[in-house]
């Protein structure tokens, strides 16, 4: 009788431990409950990382690489066979995708008073920032190229784009955001995809669920000055995030930093007092274009521009003051 009671107590203890352990394991594994696959590669002249949650995640990763490579072939400034190069060479092109992206670009150029302008392709080439040819060009060379540029010299009629002048368009400021739009469309139309996060350089798309608990996605923003450190983390359910900063590509001469984001009014790297701008919105092209435009415009005008598009943002100035704008969940 005494032995029976003892065995019963031991079994009860073991059962209690098993229940406690099972509960702990369930809590621990709630965040890892979808199949996932990750891959990093070079695309669009930068790092592309993917994490896809789905029943068969590997296949989507391969498809996304193909989608981005095809887009790169179409809008590459360097590839002489790209559709964009044909437009730059011949001054006219019938291509719906390029017409659509240029519509967005010219609208933002207009709203930013012309400081954001994708027609400064040859000026960017002249500066060569981030390449082995980076240099400070002569003032005469800059003003000569600037006189040829101007977003208002682009005409768009349906899917046909025509240039009224001798200039080149560089879609570097919006190409990665455009890729994020394509990736979002693909993920939305793919069967069996639970969710995914893809970054193409400073442009990010997050889609669907990251786990069954429905936790928000967490997108880290790099510290603009301290390499390897984070500025903070944005939490969001779905959408696009783009960051523009003076730390991405730059060189220094006589103690002055020359970064790659050019002010299309002056022809020089902009000096708005900002060192990093992150934009969150519901379009990849917009988030990419707005982060660049706001970086050039500065905090006050940038805030106004973001509000016109219902976008949210994080502005960091050279004294490391951080300002958040709009509806954004940012921990820092």
């Amino acid at each position: 009788m005494k032995n029976k009671k003892r065995i019963l107590k031991i079994v009860s203890l073991l059962l209690t431990c098993a229940v406690v352990l099972s509960a702990a394991l369930i809590i621990r594994d709630r965040k890892k409950d979808f199949n996932s696959a990750e891959k990093s590669t070079v695309a669009m002249n930068t790092i592309m990382t993917q994490k896809i949650y789905s029943e068969v995640p590997g296949s989507q990763i391969t498809d996304i690489i193909t989608i981005v490579n095809v887009l790169e072939k179409m809008i590459s400034f360097k590839d002489i066979d790209s559709q964009l190069s044909i437009l730059n060479r011949e001054g006219t092109l019938d291509n719906g995708a390029i017409a659509d992206v240029l519509r967005v670009c010219t609208e933002i150029s207009e709203k930013s008073g012309g400081v954001f302008d994708v027609t400064v392709g040859e000026l960017s080439e002249l500066w060569g920032i981030g390449t082995e040819n980076e240099n400070i060009p002569e003032a005469e060379e800059i003003s000569s190229l600037l006189s040829e540029c101007g977003y208002e010299k682009i005409s768009i009629n349906g899917s046909t784009v025509t240039f009224d002048g001798d200039f080149s368009v560089d879609l570097g400021a919006v190409g990665k955001g455009m890729a994020c739009d394509y990736i979002m469309n693909y993920l939305m139309s793919s069967e069996g995809v639970n969710g995914g996060v893809v970054s193409v350089g400073g442009s990010i798309v997050v889609y669907g669920q990251r786990n069954k608990a429905g936790d928000k996605w967490r997108v880290a923003v790099r510290h603009p000055r301290n390499e390897g450190e984070l500025l903070g983390v944005i939490s969001l359910s779905e959408g696009f995030v783009s960051t523009s900063g003076d730390y991405e590509r730059y060189f220094e001469e006589n103690g002055k930093r020359y970064h790659h984001i050019l002010d299309a009014e002056s022809g020089y790297p902009c000096e708005s007092g900002l060192i990093s701008v992150t934009v969150v919105c519901d379009s990849g092209i917009l988030s990419d274009a707005l982060s660049t435009a706001c970086f050039i415009l500065g905090r006050e005008k940038g805030e106004k521009l973001l509000s016109e598009y219902g976008a949210a943002g994080i502005f960091v100035d050279k004294d490391m003051n951080i300002t958040t704008v709009g509806d954004i969940d940012f921990e820092y």
């Binding site: 070079v42 996060v197 350089g201």
Partner: peptide, 27 residues
Amino acid sequence: AGDAMACVPERVVVRLYGSDDFDTLAY
């Protein structure tokens, strides 16, 4: 963890994986 760097011309990407407290990092 979560950080990455690349040699673009050589198409080489180096990435550290671990239990980072975020899903992705804007580079």
